[in-house]
């Protein structure tokens, strides 16, 4: 049975929102740890987080001052902010609720529980005292849901679109978090370099990437090497390269995927020509901007190929395709 475009669209967004909520939780945790680690009096503010989410304007419209409380409130509980944790989880749940009939029952239950947990705990988890526990729970519950998807969703279109959403969102998050370094730490003087390495240690651990990094690269955490690792590692499953090659693979199982495949090939080429060692801070930032634009373009192509339906599309026989 072919999958309805509407259902595929919702599954894709279910995954994107779930991965986004876990990614945001990881990032907020890493950033908080990082702030705790740096010496007092250093010029490092919470506005860095706003830059990462491209939401300085939206923040300024609602809040007077950039304080830890305001920024975390904005990013954790504020439903007016479409990048907030609570918003992502709510949106994921809405999408699962309307696609329950194509998913194993447990997935709805777990996503609903994640939602209920976030609704109950979010507002009291802005203060540092409860923040870590809360963010950790969000990540763990997401891992549980991911495990269920891997172990119970049939390998048909439902799985395909869940996976597509997952890797696109991963790619988006990886490029965003790397930008934290560029966005917050500034040009590379002595102090900045030591700050930077502190940041990367926290970031790697938040991505559960510490040991993978040490095995592949070595014990020294240094920014160009971390960036190269997170962009180009062929073995670490959260690297940009890995995400893009997974997407390449998924596209092969779908009809009308030529346009999307071309877009991904182009992105792989861009990635291939990149080397963090050769980049100034400004160049790195520009590169990430370019890559994010490419991710948005890819999303547009996916949208057009499978979700926004034109009545001239080819006739399907209704027979199941090989995946």
């Amino acid at each position: 049975m072919s999958m309805l475009s509407r259902v595929a669209d919702r599954l894709y967004w279910t995954s994107r929102y779930l991965v986004r909520s876990a990614g945001t939780a990881r990032l907020l945790n890493a950033y908080t740890q990082f702030i705790l680690d740096i010496p007092q009096g250093s010029e490092l503010g919470w506005d860095g987080l706003l830059k990462v989410f491209d939401s300085e304007q939206a923040f300024d419209q609602k809040y007077k001052k950039v304080t830890e409380h305001n920024v975390l409130k904005f990013l954790i509980t504020d439903l007016d902010n479409p990048t907030s944790l609570r918003f992502s989880i709510k949106a994921a749940r809405e999408n699962v609720r309307t696609t329950r009939d194509v998913l194993p029952e447990d997935i709805w239950e777990q996503v609903n529980e994640l939602y209920l947990y976030a609704e109950e705990m979010a507002s009291q988890s802005i203060a540092r005292k409860h923040r870590f526990d809360f963010l950790e729970q969000i990540v763990k519950r997401n891992q549980q849901i991911h495990g269920l998807i891997e172990s119970t969703v049939s390998r048909d279109h439902s799985y395909t679109f869940l996976k597509l959403g997952r890797f696109i969102e991963h790619a988006d998050i990886i490029s965003r978090v790397i930008d934290v370094d560029a966005a917050t730490i500034g040009e590379k003087d002595e102090v900045a370099i030591s700050k930077s390495s502190l940041f990367w240690v926290n970031l790697l651990s938040s991505l559960s990437a510490n040991s993978a990094y040490r095995i592949e690269i070595g014990p020294l955490v240094d920014s160009p090497e971390v960036i190269n690792f997170l962009f180009k590692s062929h073995s670490f499953p959260r690297s940009l390269f890995f995400c893009m090659s997974e997407i390449q693979h998924i596209l092969k199982s779908l009809k009308s995927s030529e346009a999307a495949a071309r877009q991904v090939d182009g992105m792989m080429k861009i990635l291939d020509g990149f080397d963090a060692e050769q980049q100034s801070h400004k160049q790195l930032h520009d590169f990430i901007d370019t890559f994010q634009t490419q991710i948005n373009l890819l999303h547009g192509v996916i949208n057009k190929s499978w979700f926004e339906f034109s009545e001239q599309s080819p006739v399907s026989t209704g027979k199941k395709d090989k995946t």
């Binding site: 072919s2 999958m3 779908l254 009809k255 499978w306 006739v315 026989t317």
Partner: peptide
């Protein structure tokens, strides 16, 4: 027809 990811299906 219905709108599916494989195209239109009767």
């Amino acid at each position: 027809y219905m709108r599916t990811v494989d195209g239109r299906e009767r």
